[in-house]
């Protein structure tokens, strides 16, 4: 498990986000401002361009660069949120041995960054509604003796459930919050992209 694996994760995420750009924008059109798909696609395409140009010797360097790229290229709310996630995720892995436990700690640090920036709480109908159950499922799997593949699969599955559970919620953060009750019945685009990233991690980081 090293630089190449994490690079594969980012490349696979870029592919999946590109394929789903229209879908994410459609979700965002219903309750936001119709740019989530194109923003994520642009940001991860920029990460792939960096991966093509630069060789990284350490996992944390790679992930921090990915975070800075998202902060610099995406804008909107998803740029600082996902950018901060990768910055903190990478920082937490600096000098650490890559194990299911250290990745779990790094995921927590990354999501902590999302919370610090976005100030969301569970049930606000945001990406945190996918991240929170994913972290919980990941930890439970590791505690139960699961390997990285198993833990990431559990996290992705929990994220998908969290994503689906955003549909009946009233949005309290982000642009969807302006709709109030009218945001009910729509799946959150941020929770959807988070699930795509975790599903990609489960495929590539095992």
């Amino acid at each position: 498990m090293g630089v190449e694996d994490f690079a594969n994760w980012l490349r696979d995420s870029a592919r999946v986000l590109h394929e789903n750009a229209g879908y994410l924008t459609e979700l965002d059109s219903a309750i936001g401002d119709a740019d989530h798909g194109s923003n994520m696609d642009r940001g991860f395409a920029a990460i792939v361009a960096v991966l093509d140009e630069t060789s990284f010797s350490a996992v944390d360097e790679l992930l921090k660069k990915a975070g800075m790229t998202l902060v610099s290229k995406v804008g909107g709310a998803s740029g600082p949120l996902y950018g901060t996630f990768f910055l903190r995720f990478g920082t937490a892995l600096a000098g650490a041995e890559i194990t299911p436990a250290s990745i779990g700690e790094a995921l927590k640090a990354g999501v902590g960054g999302i919370l610090a920036r976005g100030k969301a709480e569970l049930g606000d109908k945001t990406m945190y509604d996918a991240w929170a159950p994913a972290l919980e499922a990941y930890d439970a799997a590791v505690a139960g003796g699961s390997d990285l593949a198993g833990a990431l699969a559990a996290a992705a599955e929990a994220a998908a459930k969290g994503r689906d559970a955003t549909t009946p919620l009233v949005a309290r953060k982000g642009r969807a919050s302006y709709l109030g009750e009218r945001s009910v019945g729509h799946q959150d685009p941020g929770a959807t992209s988070t699930t795509l990233l975790l599903e990609s991690a489960a495929r590539t980081l095992a």
Partner: peptide, 29 residues
């Protein structure tokens, strides 16, 4: 219509309006 999206952000019939909108083509209250 956001140029990158290529189609209107929401549909509004001839006899309807949205009240309480912002400035991003998002539906109103």
């Amino acid at each position: 219509t956001v140029p990158a999206a290529g189609k209107p952000t929401f549909e509004l019939a001839e006899n309807e309006m949205e009240v309480g909108i912002g400035i991003h083509g998002e539906p109103g209250r």
